[in-house]
Design a protein around this nucleic acid. Structure first.
Lengths: 107, 107
DNA sequence: ACAATCCATACCTCGTTGGCTATGGATTTA
DNA sequence: TAAATCCATAGCCAACGAGGTATGGATTGT
């Protein structure tokens, strides 16, 4: 039910947005202009995507004069890691149960 | 660049689809009818979502008479785990406050 | 053979969203 | 002060996608 997972998945589903986030992870803090230069889309589009990433908690911004610096907030990925771990856990449990069952049938 | 990540994120971005996948992870193999009963959407919609999940490699189907059984293919989540790990790696190279996240991922 | 059930496909509709241009506020530079 | 730069917002449009209903093929039950 956790809504944060939904926000994360929806936010990272867009390739342009994911690319922006990846660049911030790889290269660290960047201004909007620097990001726009290699984004392949217009500056307003970059700003909008950064706004969405910010709202999802995946980036934070820092204002310095007339430019805005964005940086990745990797901690926001935790719910995603938790979700995958949970799914893997269920999977493991089912195999344990199957193991159990097979052992019973064996005797 | 990897297109598989894109497919995974896009596929899991939809709540209905994610719910179906979660149920298959939690409860194991299910028929379309059983899934539809609690999905909150119509049967054709469920079938369509299952088709998309299958195309993404997240589920597999098994035909038995007139019904189709679907089950989760958890291995398909690997690219997603890899991606988060990669992002975490970049981040860690720059700073060093990653303990919390790493603990979760270590499980 | 006929009816009923299970599932998938086809088709349509409508809301969401990612892209653009235009514009304006804020700041720096000439 | 005037011009230029940086960024965000607003408004618009086209495309995608998730939902529905209708339908048909395949299988099971009567």
């Amino acid at each position: 039910m956790s809504d944060t997972q939904d926000v994360l998945f929806r936010t990272l589903a867009d390739p342009t947005r994911r690319a922006l986030f990846e660049r911030l992870c790889r290269e660290g803090e960047k201004t909007v202009g620097a990001l726009t230069a290699r984004a392949g889309v217009s500056q307003p589009v970059v700003s909008k995507h950064l706004g969405i990433l910010k709202q999802a908690g995946l980036v934070r911004d820092r204002h310095e004069g007339r430019q805005t610096h964005y940086s990745a907030q990797l901690g926001a990925l935790a719910p995603l890691v938790d979700w995958t771990s949970e799914m893997a856990g269920f999977w493991q449990n089912r195999f344990d149960q199957l193991d159990d069952l097979l052992k019973r049938m064996d005797q």
